[in-house]
């Protein structure tokens, strides 16, 4: 049984269509289906959308569209079957795990009772789904973490973490592009940049894509990082 969709006003120029209240692949798939309907039907006044775990955030121009009309439009679409779209592309992200690139690996190992090598093996064995991108450019929220290597967020967030950080926060793992504060645990770094304003395309991941991590050595990391700085994508699209 699917929960009733809810439309919430977010001021006078945005609204949120909530399709449920959990982090779940099917629910996220329905959000992407609703997002695809917006692209297909382009309701007047809609400027852009942000698909998130369980809701679609809609930015609109209140001069063109009023809330009541748009809310009715979205409620109607949200009540349809909303078949989740086919899986997107699969990406392989090189990651240098542990040591200086993943300073929290010893903590994750001790907290989970696994060896560092086993934590890395399990993290690199996963097939992850891109649930959403948000907060900062290129920050990618991934679902599908092995429950055995899940660790709760830090009580005291770190004031900074480097570009390309791969981290674990609860049942989620993430790819971060820009250096930023984080409450998640740093397990490794990827040389790939999910956001590069000087590259075309600036972004390449899409919600609904899948991601695998490929462990690389510190030397390989350094070489790949140089190529990424020159504008190469470094992460490869391939078969899941």
């Amino acid at each position: 049984m699917k929960p009733e969709p809810v439309i919430l006003p977010c001021g006078d120029s945005a609204l949120s269509v909530e399709l449920g209240a959990v982090i779940d692949e099917t629910l996220n798939g329905r959000v992407l289906a609703l997002d695809a309907l917006v692209t297909a039907e382009s309701p007047p006044g809609v400027i852009e959308t942000i698909p998130t775990y369980r809701s679609l955030f809609v930015v609109y121009d209140p001069v063109v569209a009023d809330y009541a009309t748009l809310a009715a439009w979205f409620l109607d679409r949200a009540n349809r079957a909303l078949t989740p779209p086919k899986p997107g592309r699969n990406w392989q992200f090189p990651v240098c795990y542990g040591a200086e690139h993943g300073i929290d690996l010893p903590f994750i190992a001790s907290r989970t009772g696994l060896s560092e090598a086993e934590v890395v093996r399990r993290h690199a064995a996963g097939l992850y789904r891109v649930y959403m991108m948000g907060f900062l450019p290129g920050f990618t929220y991934l679902g599908g973490l092995d429950a055995a290597i899940s660790v709760p967020r830090r009580d005291d967030p770190r004031l900074t973490s480097p570009t390309g950080t791969i981290s674990i926060g609860g049942i989620q793992t993430g790819i971060q592009c820009l250096a930023s504060p984080t409450g998640w645990h740093l397990i490794g770094r990827t040389p790939a940049r999910t956001y590069d304003p000087n590259r075309d395309p600036v972004f390449f991941l899409e919600p609904g894509d899948t991601v695998r991590f490929i462990a690389v050595s510190p030397d390989e990391f350094t070489a790949l990082e140089r190529r990424a700085a020159a504008g190469e994508r470094v992460a490869e699209a391939g078969n899941p």
Binding site: I47, E48, I50, M133, F135, P137, Y195, V202
Partner: peptide
């Protein structure tokens, strides 16, 4: 700059 908020760019 509108259109890229879905990728985290405000």
């Amino acid at each position: 700059r509108f259109g890229e908020q879905r990728y985290g760019l405000g």
